[in-house]
Amino acid sequence: MMEGSPATSLITTGNESLPAELETRTAQRFRKVPGPGLWLPLLAGMLFLAMWELQLFHRLFDLKKYQLPLPSAIYEALRDNFSLLLSYTGYTLAEAVLGMLIGSASGFVVALAATAWPRWGGGSLTLVAALNAVPIVALAPIMNLWFGDGIGSRAAIVTATTMAAMAINACKGMSAVDPLALDLMHSYAAGKKEVFRYLRIQNSLPYVFTALKINTTASMIGAIVGEFFFSSRGLGYLLSNSIKVAKMPLGWSCIVLAAVAGVLFYLIVERLEKVFIRWHSSRRA
């Protein structure tokens, strides 16, 4: 999950000529010319699209065009319904982000409790894991009953599906603390609260961001699948309806937009991670 526990400080070398070493590291970081790392995947993607458009996959897997619409048809559907698709993407993304924030925040609180009072807090972790195991098919009607068919019910579904990843990861980060770092806290006569404030919470940050990254994709799934059932808006609603009435290109354009939104959401969280845990070992060039 993580590359090494974040609290263990590295004893690198005994020599003190490090500043020079640092400069080379920095130089390496700025010498980023778009190399094969960028254009190779780009080329592969274009090749893939071209093969798709030339119906190579259709021949290979014996598919009809209504079963797998061509990229050009998907693009047309996207262009023709652009404003509707855009507003639906915004709607679904709002559900996902809102639910993910609430779910991750409550997961973090559960982790705090589970670490502070392991005796009964451990039980709350199990409870959250159980909640996570409830399928969305079962959650959707219940949440619809509780929160109506608006944005709230999907946000609630997403909350339920993102809480566990955060609770479990954050709890790991708060308890996987260097024992000597804890001793140090004791030597300062620190109480439980201070140990959290100065040590455990910071120590959990890399784990927290791992959970947030997992939750970006989980939240998109939760929101879209949640919309299959009682919604009258959103990408999931449009997707399931388009497929029902065999408007395959429109359905596929929903999939494309969901993917784009999911990737954007992920990239934003990844960017935040870079800002917040600049100190972490994974940032060491």
Binding site: L184, S187, L199, Q202, S281
Partner: peptide, 20 residues
């Protein structure tokens, strides 16, 4: 003595907090 912070301690590893 510990609660009155009478001593400072240094361990075998530096135990610096990476985020500080």
């Amino acid at each position: 003595a510990r609660l009155a912070r009478k001593y400072g301690i240094v361990f075998q590893s530096p135990v610096l907090y990476d985020w500080r």
